[in-house]
């Protein structure tokens, strides 16, 4: 069953074109969304969540058209665009008090579990947290309402190696519970540890989507490289020449 279907997503800016991006994500799968800086990863993720208004294309979550069913879909999806970057002077407790009232499936015990797992102190403000801890707070928010699909923009970029490893363990734990995860990253080694599928975007065009293992095997067989990093460097370098 597909939890996310992106079809021909197109967004034109004066100096950039997100060109007819299409991919899909299966239930219980982890998909890594890779590409260079400025390749269109954030624009794609924001378009999926209706933060950016695409010129054309369709996004369906759980079989529902996103724009037509925004409230229902958002109840079942968690979006974290990196670290918590809002209400930096408010106590986390106060932010959560308001936030929980919006979610029908808010799970207080799950929330407490992740607070403890990530060593987050509710009496602090986001301003008092490091970048990495604010990423963890953002994830805690997404995980506390039993999201069935997580869309995460660079969730590991501000984390130390131990926190990254912990987070990847959390991803695998969630995957086993049937949660689907789409996350963008530059750290390709993270993907090799946990992703089932990848979507690779370059200059606004999707150049590959599908099974990560098959992509790695095919690239190795073609002499392009054995790791995602080698493959990315190969493709992007070729473009520069």
């Amino acid at each position: 069953m597909q939890v996310l279907e992106v079809s021909n997503l197109t967004k034109r800016y004066p100096a950039f074109l997100l060109d007819s991006v299409s991919f899909s994500l299966e239930k219980g799968h982890i998909m890594g969304f890779i590409g260079r800086n400025g390749a269109g990863k954030t624009t794609t993720l924001k378009s999926i969540f209706n933060l950016v208004h695409p010129d054309s294309g369709e996004v369906r979550c759980f079989g529902l058209e996103m724009r037509e069913n925004e409230r229902e879909v958002k109840q079942r999806v968690g979006f974290a665009g990196g670290a918590v970057d809002y209400y930096k002077h408010k106590k986390i407790r106060d932010i959560i008090d308001v936030t929980r009232s919006f979610y029908a499936n808010w799970d207080e015990s799950e929330y407490r579990h992740y607070l403890s797992l990530f060593s987050l102190d509710e009496s602090k403000t986001p301003l008092q947290l490091s970048e990495g801890m604010r990423v963890k707070l953002s994830l805690t928010l997404s995980l506390s309402h039993h999201a069935e699909l997580l869309i995460l923009d660079e969730p590991t970029s501000g984390l130390d190696p131990v926190s990254r490893a912990e987070l990847l363990d959390v991803f695998l734990y969630l995957k086993n519970r049937g949660v689907s995860i789409l996350f963008s990253t530059h750290i390709t080694t993270d993907l090799e540890k946990c992703a089932d599928d990848i979507a690779y975007i370059a200059k606004g065009r999707l150049i590959h989507t599908g099974s990560l293992r098959a992509f790695l095997e095919e690239s190795a067989a073609n002499g392009i490289g054995a790791s995602l990093e080698d493959i990315m460097v190969y493709h992007e370098k070729e473009r520069l020449l």
Partner: peptide, 15 residues
Amino acid sequence: EANDTLYTVLLPVRK
């Protein structure tokens, strides 16, 4: 300044 717009549109509400 508090990035209220981003916080709000991420909630399960219509934009």
